[in-house]
Each structure stands twice: as structure tokens, then as C-alpha cells.
Design a protein around this nucleic acid. Structure first.
Lengths: 104, 104
DNA sequence: TACGATAGTGCAGTATTATTGAACTATTGA
DNA sequence: TCAATAGTTCAATAATACTGCACTATCGTA
């Protein structure tokens, strides 16, 4: 069974967050997760681009996870991803909101 | 004579700004420029780390310049760098302030 | 139990980007 | 004119990112 590694909230760095969000695809993924009604989405459900290779998608989710931006849990055959909003916001108040309000 | 290329304000992208600031060194450089009384500093005057190779320093300033975050003009033997605060803020209101208020 | 479909991971090769030593340009002051 | 200063550019190496392919895990059906 695959076990996902999530950094503790205290280890989330500003540079790490900015680096993870410096890719347009990952920015879109994070927005999708936040806009979803359930607050969590599968990997394929969260990607804005259907013809992206699965391994690339998996890579982007790993970058977001390693930066501490999302939490991933395995639910049946798929992964459920949700934004660690409260934790990131506690560490860097207002940061995510200030970044995510822009279109591009 | 060296001529610096600065993207027009309309070409500044969110991903570009975040990418440029995803490096701790560049974050510090930007903060130093903002904290300086004159509002502008030479390259060596703005770096927080004296033993950094000149070529690396030059590279970091170029990344900041290409992202549209700073403006560089040659003044005598040195370069004067200043943050394009108003332009970046007009394009992404509140973004820089939200990022730069954190220590790390 | 077995089979096929679905969802995603991990490796390994290639492609892109970052770092830095060395040589160079431009300016200043003596 | 010469030396010192400040920084750029090039080229080589180091580190990351992207993605095809093979693999694992789960579910539903029979």
C-alpha cells in the first residue's frame, strides 16, 4: 500500500509554497480543489487538462504534497486530495488568498 | 554598454513572480531593496551573502528582472536596482505585500 | 478465485534549468 | 595609461522536471 508523506505544518516554507505554485498547472489544480464542493478531488478529477500523461500529473501532485499545500489519502481505487488550507493559513496568514485570487 | 531588458507591466505573470520569489536568496534581495532608504541598491549592496560568486548574483538579479520584479539601470560603475512596486501591485494588487511580510 | 478495468506510483532516460569559474566589458580615479 | 571596481556572458557541470513504460492496488463481475 502506498503511504503518502506530508510535512508537518511547521516545516512548510514560504519558498516551498511559492515554488510549488510557480507552475500554472499546479496553480489550476489548487484552485480546482478549493472550488470543489466536497473540498477534495481525485488526481484526474482535479487536473484541468485531460490529455496530460498520468506520470506528469502524479509528479505535480507530489510537488504540491511535498510543499505542504495538499493532503492526499487513498480512498478505494483513487486518491482524495484536499488543500491544507487552515494549516497553511495559520503558518502564512493571507498568503494563499492573496495568490489565488488572480486568474493568471 | 549593457542594455537591460525589462518586460512591460502587462507581461508580468503570476507564475513568473512566484517562481522568481521561490528562492530564499531572491526573496532576501527583494526585501533589502524595499527596506533601503534610497529605494535602490547596487547588486552587491543588495545581496545578503558576501561570499556568493558574482556570476550567481548576476543570475539572481536577471531572474528578478525577467520576472518583472525589479528595474535595473546602470549608474556609473554599478547597477542600481529598484523594485517595480507600483507596476507589480497594479497588476497583482496585494500580492507582494502578502508574500513579503513573512520572515521565511 | 480469477479476470478486466480503473487510478495512480516509481523508475529511468531525456530535456530543461541552476550554479559557478574564467574571461570579458564598462566606468572611475590616480 | 594603468589598476581597481562592478557586473555580464560563456561554457561546463550539477540539479530538477517531464514523461514513456512497467508496475501495484482496488473494485466489480462472474
Amino acid at each position: 500500500m502506498t503511504r503518502f508523506v506530508h510535512p508537518p505544518a511547521g516545516d512548510i516554507t514560504l519558498a516551498g509554497v511559492l515554488g510549488a505554485l510557480s507552475d500554472p498547472m499546479r496553480l489550476k489544480i489548487l484552485k480546482r480543489l478549493l472550488e470543489s464542493r466536497a473540498g477534495s478531488l481525485s488526481c484526474s478529477g482535479a487536473t484541468p487538462c485531460a490529455e496530460m500523461p498520468k506520470s506528469t500529473l502524479s509528479h505535480h501532485f507530489r510537488v504540491l504534497r511535498d510543499a505542504g499545500l495538499i493532503r492526499t489519502t487513498k480512498q478505494g481505487v483513487e486518491n482524495l486530495n484536499s488543500v491544507r488550507w487552515d494549516e497553511v493559513n495559520a503558518r502564512f496568514p493571507g498568503l494563499l488568498k492573496a495568490i489565488l485570487k488572480f486568474q493568471r
